[in-house]
Each structure stands twice: as C-alpha cells, then as structure tokens.
Simulated assay, not measured.
Amino acid sequence: MLTILDKYILKRYLVTFLGIMLLFIPIGIMISLAEKIGKIIDNEAPLSEVIVFYGNFSLVLGNLLMPILLFLSIIFFTSKLASNTEIVAMLSSGISYWRFLRPYFIGASIVAILIFLMGQFIVPNASIGFNEFEYKYFKKGRQTRQTTNIFNQLNEQDFIYVSSFDPQRQIGYNFTYEHFNEENQLDYKISAANIRWIEKDSIYRLTSYQKRKIREGKELIRSESRLDTVFSFQIDDLTPVSYVAETKNLFELNKFIEEQRKKGAANVNTYVLAKYKRWALPVAAFILTIIAVAVSSVKRRGGMGLNLLIGIALGMVYIFFDRIFGTMAEQSGFSPLLAVLIPNLIFGIIGVYLLQKAKR
C-alpha cells in the first residue's frame, strides 16, 4: 500500500523523468531537422514518411538516452528535496533512510519495465523504418549509404566478403565467397560485381559471376554475365553486425544467435553482447537510481550544481567502463556476459557504498 510520502516522491520521480524526456527528444528532433531539412526538400521526401521517420527517430533516441536522462532527473528533483530540507524533515519524523528509498525503487521498477519493452520489442521495429529512411533520402546517391567492408566467417571452411552493402535494396557489392578444404587450402573462390537477394524466388542473383577452382595444381575458371543460384548463408550474413542486432526483437535475436553458433560464425560474440546489453539496461536503471539518490540526497554547499557535476562525472565513468568492456568482448575472446556484468557490478558496489555514506 502506497503512503502519501510514497506517492509524493514517486510522482516527482516519474513526472521529472517524463519532463526531461519530453524536453530532450524535441531538441534532438529539431537539431536533426535543421541539419537534414535540405536533403528532405532536395530528395522530395513525402511529408507522411518524414513524420513516420521522426516518430521512429524519437523512439531510437529515447531508448539511447533513457538511462542517462533518468539519472539526471533523479539528481535534479532529489537535490531540490534536499535543498528545501524536505529529506531532513522526512527522516526526522522517524522514517528510516531505507524506507525513504522505497518509492525510488518502485519508480526504478516502472522505468526498468519500460526500458525492457522498448529495447526488446518496440525500438527494433522502429530501427527498421529509421534506417530505411536514412538510406533512401539522407544518404541517397552516396557510397556512404552502404555499410562497408563486411567480412563474415560462416563456418570453419567458408568465408564471405562484400566491400559494401545496401540494406534497403539488399545488394552487396564486390562479393567474394571462399571455400577451404580440410587441409586449410583454398578449394574454390566465387566472385561477383554484386549479389542481390531475390525474395520472391528465394535465390541470389550474381552479376559478373566468376568461379575459380583449384584442381591438381590447375586453375579452372567459369564465368557468367548473370547467374541465379542458392547459398547456404542468409542475407543477414551480408548485413553488418550493428544493423542486424538493432533491428531484431528478443526472439528474433535469440534465434539468429543460435543460427550463427551452429554455423561457427566468428563474430557471434558481438550479437551476444548486444543481447546481454538489452537485459542489462533495466538493471542499470536501479544502479543509476541508487547512485543518483546517494549523490543528491545530501545537502551540499554547492547546491544542485555540485550534485549534477558529481553525478555527471560518475555517469561518464560508467559509460567509459561500459564501452571499454564492450570493445574487449567484440574484438577479443573476452566473455560478453562478463563485459556486461563487470561495469554494473562495480558501480552497484559504488552505489551501495555511497548510500551508506549518505545515510550516515
């Protein structure tokens, strides 16, 4: 049963968080619109598509900024409570410090559920429309509209490479497929100017196709101007890691990771890391809440400004640790699970220590 105190703090928690979200997201939209309005006009993007794009943009941006905006909002309103000596009055009435934290944890639970649903189901779907609009209008006619230099190890013997990939049109350029025998020697190599996925026929169409075989020290070459064929890999194997992960929901990503593991893909750790990060974000809501309350519930001579400064410094260090361990997991054999757990564990301990200090 929520008391008047719980409702008061919980209301401030959620209203301040929502207010800061509604403040920062429109600013992000206005900055993006000011930067890209020329391209929207030049490429004659329909108004309906622009509106849908910025709806998707809001979801993607909101999901990206949600943890740090939650952190800042808690520091903001808790510092006001401290500066108005409201926290002192609450504790002087006989309420324990841990009881004072109860509405904060209720608020963190609500936000954690929102972050989970956003990250696992809503934002992946929004990312598809967001990226398609980007490639269609903002990067139209430029080489940068395609993600570049994509290499994928399908299994121990098969490798594919494209110099660039257009996710919207599902075309890879300068395609290469290499198959090695059990002695780790090149058995054959397929190359093409481009490879296109024909969804209605479930085939790949190769342009300027060439296949080179090595047989008894001799090189056999077969060439075709165009060839329709099938491969054991999927179009997602030609898609960059970041693009694949951000457009798949919870169940799709789990299935995709399992498929990559069966094929022995070399970059599966990157997908697993993206999966664990989605699960870690709701936990981060609690950790950031603990740290924010510990930093801002103490009345300081510098006031809210000093609390914000301390909070932002801690937040930057947290992001730094998260990036460092994430890079280690992507580029080395470091465990993705540990890469996600270690920063949260370290800052969870820091948060509990700061709470104990604030309590005293």
Rank of each mutant, 00 (worst) to 15 (best):
L355Y: 05
I349P: 13
K140Q: 15
K7I: 05
R99F: 06
F231G: 00
I221P: 08
N344E: 07
F175G: 01
F138H: 08
N194Y: 10
K189D: 04
W197M: 14
Y8Q: 01
M328I: 10
A45L: 15
F105Y: 03
L281K: 12
L250P: 10
L10Q: 00
E246T: 12
K36N: 15
Q157V: 07
T176H: 12
P240V: 03
E134F: 12
E224P: 13
Y271K: 06
I122M: 09
Y318C: 02
F325K: 07
L338W: 01
E35Y: 11
R301F: 11
V230W: 15
S83A: 15
I40T: 07
Y276L: 14
F151L: 03
L23I: 05
F116A: 01
K299Q: 14
P67L: 07
E182P: 04
N56W: 02
I51L: 13
E49V: 14
W279C: 04
V15I: 07
I113T: 04
M90Q: 05
F24H: 07
T289F: 00
I106A: 03
Y188D: 06
L64P: 09
F286T: 01
D322E: 14
L154F: 05
I257N: 02
A284V: 11
Y104E: 02
I51Q: 07
T16L: 01
F105I: 01
I4L: 13
G217T: 05
N63M: 08
G107A: 10
A245R: 04
I4N: 08
K277R: 14
L22E: 03
H179M: 06
D236P: 06
G38N: 15
I221S: 10
K263A: 09
L273T: 09
F251T: 07
M1P: 06
F100T: 00
Y318A: 02
Q157G: 06
L238S: 02
T3M: 08
R212I: 10
